[in-house]
Amino acid sequence: MRKDVKRVAIYIRVSTYEQAQEGYSIDEQKERLVQYCKAMGWVVSEIYIDPGFSGSNLERPGLQKLIAEIKAYDSVLVYKLDRISRSQKDTMYLIEDVFLKNDVDFVSMSESFDTSTPFGRAAVGLLATFAQLERENIKERMTMGMKGRARKGYWKGTSRPPIGYDYKDGNLEVNDYEAMQIRELFTIAANGIPNMPYNVKNMARYLSKKYSNKYGNWTDSTGITYTIQNKVYIGMVKYKDEYFPGNHMPLIDNELFEKANSRLNAYLSSFGEHSTYTKYMLSGLTVCGICGRPYYR
């Protein structure tokens, strides 16, 4: 049950010199907020300060300490709403999941925003609506940006560029040593390995004995299948289910790509789930003396 005197935690943030010049300095905020508490008859229990921190995220020592100690207060007071966060999503998280969840009111002095009042609680709903709109707009801009990059021939860009390429300055650049491995992979996928049954595991064993790559070796059978099916090696880039001509150099020609995939697909169709995965240790090692195909159980 709450005491008659409201226990208030004051939160202050300043990120730049310009804000200090505009009247948001730490001392100025502190003085105004303390005076506001006196006028309201509230007790200032603690003041949390984050000097020189952006409001774009929640990774601020003062704010994290406030969150950890939130149960000790009845209200959190800020000078202005953007002092707590410049992200509507983060603002809603703090108000709904940190403050109100712990029965703590949130008050912004400048905007007269107070969740202890009916109007303040209604404003939370409006903020939630705008936060959702912001998230949708961000998602749409990201989608348009990624598709736009693909249309211009740029690879999507991740921390895991395809084997055979390095990702530098927004472009795929040929890694000569890995490119040699890719060409050999497509050759054995198209023509088979001499004196070895045609299967993905044998391709993995064959390449792993000879080469390594930026991700280790070639023991991942699923990765080999994905690599053979990846059109990046014939100079294409993909966004969702659409392909666009890429700016990077192809590692193989279309004829070899089609031949390798045609044979691989025929093999995958014949063996289904057993083509890349085996349950038993000797699966795929015992072969038929007549047709040369491996046995699976």
Results as ranks from 00 to 15, higher is better:
residue 52 G to L: 13
residue 116 S to R: 08
residue 64 Q to M: 08
residue 19 Q to N: 10
residue 56 S to G: 12
residue 133 L to N: 14
residue 136 E to P: 04
residue 14 V to R: 02
residue 102 N to K: 09
residue 74 D to S: 07
residue 28 E to F: 07
residue 14 V to L: 15
residue 73 Y to T: 03
residue 110 S to H: 11
residue 126 L to K: 10
residue 76 V to A: 02
residue 87 S to Y: 07
residue 77 L to N: 00
residue 110 S to Y: 08
residue 34 V to P: 03
residue 54 S to E: 05
residue 27 D to F: 11
residue 143 T to I: 14
residue 143 T to R: 14
residue 28 E to P: 01
residue 18 E to P: 04
residue 118 P to I: 09
residue 122 A to Q: 11
residue 41 G to Q: 12
residue 21 Q to N: 09
residue 45 S to I: 01
residue 91 T to I: 10
residue 59 E to S: 08
residue 26 I to F: 06
residue 75 S to H: 08
residue 134 E to K: 05
residue 39 A to P: 01
residue 70 I to D: 00
residue 134 E to G: 06
residue 88 Q to T: 10
residue 77 L to E: 01
residue 57 N to R: 11
residue 122 A to N: 10
residue 42 W to P: 00
residue 54 S to C: 07
residue 92 M to C: 14
residue 19 Q to Y: 07
residue 143 T to L: 14
residue 37 C to T: 06
residue 114 D to Q: 07
residue 109 M to C: 09
residue 90 D to V: 03
residue 32 R to A: 12
residue 24 Y to N: 13
residue 54 S to L: 05
residue 117 T to E: 12
residue 151 R to C: 10
residue 80 K to N: 08
residue 79 Y to M: 11
residue 103 D to G: 04
residue 25 S to F: 03
residue 45 S to C: 05
residue 119 F to W: 11
residue 98 V to T: 08
residue 76 V to W: 00
residue 84 I to H: 03
residue 70 I to T: 03
residue 83 R to F: 04
residue 20 A to H: 07
residue 37 C to K: 02
residue 59 E to P: 01
residue 82 D to W: 05
residue 56 S to H: 12
residue 54 S to A: 08
residue 85 S to D: 01
residue 127 L to S: 07
residue 100 L to S: 12
residue 88 Q to M: 12
residue 20 A to Q: 14
residue 90 D to A: 06
residue 95 I to V: 15
residue 27 D to R: 15
residue 124 V to T: 06
